[in-house]
């Protein structure tokens, strides 16, 4: 099986603090991988490295067999293929939901609003936001904003989607509506990597779960194995705390 996205020995440091200490990871096409671990274990940084928001210090990242971590490479084409959704939504507050979604396709792919409108409307409708397209972010609930952020990333038609703790900032009653979106994407066969604290969700849907500890993947495997029968004591300790 050839991996869609491969990480080999990825290292990332901020000043004196090494956040990723040599990460190896393969993500197959259509696979859903969940990264779990304590805060500060390096999950978010790893995701940001994957779509080149953070340049890596050492190691390599391969997308469809091409090394995309080559220093000096233009990151923009890569970012179009790997979308990311952030914990704090990061919607552009001065644009309506629809404008948020259409900005990148318009500017990067040169599509017109008229071209985009039907597809964007379809996305909004699919995720239950058909009525909210022309609302500004501050007129939407957190769950709605996060769904718009997901639509914004999807509008670039990426091959891989990264989700960085996208439900952590939401009120508990709003988490469900966002997770439903992920279920939907999963059904569509989207390749996804999630950093998440939603263990139940990881257990239900993930193909593979990776436990990160202090910048390393300490243990990985199918969810049933990892959750029910972890081999590392630190994994056990972590799961005991969160489950």
């Amino acid at each position: 099986m050839t991996a869609k996205l491969s990480l080999r020995g990825v290292r990332k440091r901020f000043d004196d603090h090494e956040v990723c200490k040599g990460i190896d990871l393969d993500i197959a096409e259509g696979e859903m991988v969940c990264l779990i671990g304590a805060s500060g274990s390096g999950k978010s940084t790893l995701l940001r490295c994957m779509n080149l928001l953070e340049p890596i210090d050492d190691g390599s990242i391969w997308l469809d067999g091409t090394d995309i971590s080559e220093p000096g490479l233009d990151p923009q084409p890569v970012r179009q293929q790997i979308g990311i959704v952030f914990q704090s939504y990061n919607l552009f507050p001065h644009m309506t939901a629809a404008e948020n979604v259409m900005l990148a396709p318009r500017r990067v792919r040169g599509l017109s609003r008229e071209d985009l409108r039907p597809r964007v409307t379809q996305l909004f409708t699919r995720f239950g936001l058909g009525e909210r397209m022309d609302h500004y972010p501050d007129q939407l609930s957190g769950g709605q904003q996060q769904r718009v952020a997901i639509i914004r990333a999807l509008a670039m038609e990426p091959q891989i989607m990264l989700f960085d703790e996208i439900t952590s900032a939401l009120d508990p009653e709003l988490v469900g509506e966002v997770l439903d979106v992920l279920r939907d994407l999963r059904k569509q066969g989207m390749t996804m990597v999630l950093a998440t604290h939603e263990m139940g969700f990881a257990r239900e849907l993930a193909d593979k779960v990776c436990f990160l500890d202090a910048g390393r993947i300490l243990e990985q495997g199918p969810p049933e194995t990892l959750f029910s029968n972890p081999s590392e004591p630190r994994t056990k300790a972590f799961l005991a705390r969160v489950l």
Partner: peptide
């Protein structure tokens, strides 16, 4: 800076990020 990051993650150029995301705000 998260606004710049969001724009970059969508593949927007620095120029477009400034013009459409940062400057208007």
């Amino acid at each position: 800076h998260s606004q710049r990051a969001a724009a970059a993650s969508l593949g927007l150029s620095d120029r477009d990020t400034m013009r459409y995301v940062v400057l208007p705000q």
